[in-house]
């Protein structure tokens, strides 16, 4: 996934066509392009696109003061970073990670593909947050029974066997 290519610098007579390079980058599985000449240093990175909900994010920060059930974890390495995904709320509603007796989700807990991490209750309708692959929960951003808005970060997960 994290294919990194050090491109041979173009001949001095060649014009550096960034737009063209970005197009090529978009069409191939090359994820990163670095170019240095003299003082000029260019790094182009293509972000991984495999996400469950919302855009992929590598930094783990809470975006709401009221939204901290777990401490953000540090990013250990590039491989771990690439397998991490942010799961966001699919609806406005109340977030649940516990049915009152059982805690479904906790930081460090491993969940099998198809397993339930939690749910958002919206007007009495339950929208479950399911694991789309075997994964480990690396952060939980909201408290049980907290009101969440659409798109709010709920979990950071790390896919296993990536």
């Amino acid at each position: 996934m994290n294919n990194k290519t050090k491109s041979a610098p173009p001949a001095p007579s060649e014009e550096l066509n960034l737009k063209k390079i970005m197009e090529v980058l978009g069409e191939t599985d090359v994820c990163e392009f670095e170019y240095s000449r003299g003082d000029l240093h260019i790094v182009l990175k293509k972000e991984p696109v495999a996400v469950i909900l919302g855009e992929d994010e590598n930094t783990v920060e809470t975006d709401s003061a009221s939204c901290t059930a777990a401490e953000p974890v540090a990013v250990e390495n590039a491989a771990a970073r690439d397998s991490r995904k942010i799961l966001k709320s699919p609806a406005v509603g109340t977030f649940h990670i516990s049915d009152g007796n059982t805690l479904l989700a906790a930081v460090g807990k491993k969940v099998k593909k198809g397993g339930k991490l939690g749910w958002v209750n919206s007007m009495g309708i339950t929208q479950e947050i399911m694991a789309e692959a075997d994964l480990k929960i690396t952060a939980i951003f909201c408290k049980d029974r907290e009101v969440v808005e659409w798109g709010q970060k709920l979990f950071e997960v790390e896919e296993e066997n990536v």
Binding site: A91, V92, S122, I125, V147, E149, W150
Partner: peptide
């Protein structure tokens, strides 16, 4: 969003 009745009602309720 602005035409999504369930989201708007849910927002009002929560």
């Amino acid at each position: 969003s602005y035409l999504n009745v369930s989201q708007i009602i849910s927002a009002a309720l929560v």
